[in-house]
Design a protein around this nucleic acid. Structure first.
Length: 302
DNA sequence: AAGTGAATCAACCGCACTACA
DNA sequence: GTGTAGTGCGGTTGATTCACT
C-alpha cells in the first residue's frame, strides 16, 4: 500500500528558503493564521510542500522564537529533561519557551553530548562512563541502550509535574544531584511556567527598572553564578502583551510603507533611549525584520 | 592565500499518530 | 473496522561556516 506523499513533489522547490518565500509565508500566516498546512503553499503562492512550510514557520519564522545559543540555564534544563524523557525533543522543547525541538536536538548533538562525555557522563543513559569495565556489566553495556521512555505506542504518558530531579552516580560511587551541578537550580521549580515567570530581556519592553542588570543579551554568560544576569521575570503578562501586539501589527503591515512607522512606534514604545532602541532592534531579531532592515543578529528573549 | 577537516544548523525524509469519513 | 488525509516527531543529510595548517 504505502501512503501517498504529503504533497506532489514534482516542480516543488527544495533547499534553503529565500527572503521572498519567507515573506510570502509570514504574510499569509499573519493574515490567515495557521490552518491546513497542505493548502498553505498554494494559497500563499509558494512552490513548497506544506510540510516544508510548517517546518520553516515553526523552526524559524515564528515571532516568538528565541534566537542564539542556549543559555547555560537552558542547557542544564535540557540535560535534566533528557534524562527524564529521552530523545523526545518536542516534549523537551515544550519546557523551553521560544526554543524549537530542532534547535534543541541540534544543540544536544553538537554541544551537550560532548560536554557530558567530557564530564564522563554517558549522554544516552546519563550515567557515568566507567573507565574500568567489569565483566558482568559488559553484557549490559553491549545491549542497546534505551532511553528512559521508549516508543510512541507503548509509552506511558508522563505527567510533567511528576518529573523529578535526577541523581547520578559518579565513578567513585558517590551519588550527586544534577541540581547541584546545575548551580543549585532545581528545574522542578520552573517546569510549569506561570504568567509571571516568562523571562524577558531587560532590553525589551517597558519594564526594566534595575539598571545594574547587564544590558547584554549574550546567551553564554561567563558568570556562572548569575545565569539570570541579563533577564528578569515579567511580573504581569499584560506588560508583555503590548509588545506582541506591536509585533503582530508590524507583521500584517509588512508590505506597506506603514510598516516602518509601526516599527518606529514599536521601538518608541519599547524604549525612549536612543542607544537602547538599537539594542531593542538587535534583541528583536525578527528574521524578516532583519532582512528588511539589515539588522544585525542578537538575542530576543521571551 | 589555499586547502582541508570539523563543526554547525536548516531542511528533508519517512514513520507514527490522530481524526474523520 | 478500515482506509485515507493531515500533521507531528525524530533521525539524518548536506550546505555553509569556521578553525587550523
Amino acid at each position: 500500500m504505502g501512503r501517498q506523499p504529503c504533497c506532489d513533489k514534482v516542480g516543488l522547490k527544495k533547499g534553503p528558503w529565500t527572503g521572498d518565500e519567507d515573506r510570502k509565508l509570514i504574510n499569509f500566516i499573519l493574515n490567515n493564521g495557521q490552518c491546513c498546512w497542505r493548502a498553505v503553499p498554494k494559497l500563499a503562492g509558494l512552490l513548497r510542500c506544506g510540510k516544508s512550510c510548517r517546518l520553516r514557520w515553526t523552526n524559524y519564522l515564528r515571532p516568538d522564537l528565541k534566537r542564539g545559543l542556549l543559555s547555560e540555564y537552558e542547557e542544564k534544563m535540557v540535560i535534566d529533561l533528557h534524562a527524564q524523557l529521552g530523545n523526545r525533543w518536542s516534549k523537551i522543547a515544550s519546557h523551553l519557551p521560544g526554543r524549537t525541538d530542532n534547535e534543541i536536538k541540534n544543540h544536544w548533538n553538537t554541544h551537550i553530548k560532548k560536554k557530558l562525555k567530557k564530564m564522563d557522563i554517558d549522554p544516552i543513559t546519563h550515567k557515568p562512563l566507567r573507565t574500568i569495565t567489569q565483566p558482568s556489566e559488559k553484557i549490559q553495556e553491549n545491549q542497546p541502550q534505551q532511553p528512559p521512555i521508549q516508543g510512541k505506542t507503548e509509552e506511558k504518558e508522563i505527567d510533567d509535574s511528576s518529573i523529578m530531579q535526577s541523581t547520578m552516580t559518579q565513578s567513585n560511587g558517590e551519588e550527586f544531584n544534577l541540581m547541584e551541578v546545575n548551580n543549585g537550580f532545581c528545574t522542578n521549580e520552573v517546569l510549569l511556567i506561570q504568567r509571571n515567570e516568562i523571562l524577558v530581556s531587560n532590553n525589551f519592553g517597558p519594564t526594566p527598572t534595575n539598571s545594574s542588570i547587564s544590558p547584554s543579551c549574550s546567551s553564554s554568560s561567563s558568570n556562572n553564578n548569575n545565569i539570570f544576569g541579563d533577564m528578569q521575570f515579567l511580573e504581569n503578562l499584560d506588560q508583555w502583551q503590548p509588545e506582541m501586539d506591536h509585533i503582530n501589527k508590524m507583521g500584517t503591515l509588512w508590505d506597506d510603507d506603514e510598516f516602518l512607522s509601526n516599527l518606529d512606534l514599536f521601538l518608541n514604545h519599547s524604549s525612549s533611549d536612543e542607544n537602547n532602541r538599537n539594542d531593542v532592534i538587535n534583541a528583536a531579531e525578527y528574521p524578516l525584520l532583519s532582512q528588511e532592515l539589515q539588522i544585525s543578529t542578537g538575542d530576543w528573549h521571551r
